[in-house]
Write a protein that binds this DNA or RNA. Structure first.
Lengths: 123, 123
DNA sequence: ATATAATATCATTGTATGCTGATATAATGA
DNA sequence: TCATTATATCAGCATACAATGATATTATAT
């Protein structure tokens, strides 16, 4: 909890929104929906993810406003909520194409440290 | 571990890229840099985050290609790596303005479901 | 060399969350 | 009704990771 900036500009909502894009499984679902609506079963087949996993991720994506669901008999058909979802992905892909080199190793914490150059202190 | 789709399309890299946007603290840093380059000290002042926290987040943002750093004497000056970083944010804000209602409660797991004015569950 | 300022890195901790497996709900058909 | 199919939800576990506090590094000045 910070004392400054108590999220008066909706940063938490925005962060939650981007979390929809920040997992490989969810991205694969979004990619599957990029060419049109699909049922959950089709998404499972397209992504290779487990049923409960897909359902959980779809719940998140729906809650975050990235996808919309409609019941169709026994089936649920999902589609992207807006063209801007694809636009954001396209922009990211375009930018990533230019900076991808540096992203491969983005692990932030516990970076492997190729040289092992840690030296001891002589007390 | 999945048997299908071993990330042949760079989903992991893309997800890592979006993780840069998916945390309120990092978003506040990005917002601070949206109006131009700033030193770490300025970012600390603008966001109210702790020094080590800001430094860690900047390390992630740099590793993910969202920001670029330059040394300036004792200071490090950070700036957004590309105009498309701001473009992605602008697109997200525009889309969020239309779907924000449903995002407030996006917690995916353990959703309280207080049965309020949300009409997303039939029956 | 010593001191200080600016920033980075490390270890630890608590929480968030992705995945699985089991179960529950919903819709259809016999 | 019961069975089946399609999807959703839940509990549990294991890992990821944000935040902190301490220490290390880097640059400048005296």
């Amino acid at each position: 909890m910070q004392l400054v900036n108590p999220d008066s500009s909706g940063l938490a909502v925005k962060a939650k929104f981007f979390r929809g894009f920040s997992d490989p499984s969810r991205l694969s679902i979004i990619e599957a929906l990029r060419d049109g609506p699909h049922t959950v079963g089709e998404i499972i087949a397209a992504t290779g993810l487990s049923q409960s996993n897909v359902s959980n991720h779809l719940g998140c994506l729906r809650g975050c406003g990235l996808v919309v669901a409609e019941r169709d008999g026994r089936f649920m058909t999902y589609h992207l909520s807006d063209d801007r979802v694809g636009d954001i992905l396209a922009l990211a892909e375009s930018l990533l194409a230019d900076v991808a080199r540096g992203v491969y190793e983005c692990t932030r914490y516990n970076v492997p440290r190729a040289g092992e150059g840690k030296k001891d202190r002589q007390s």
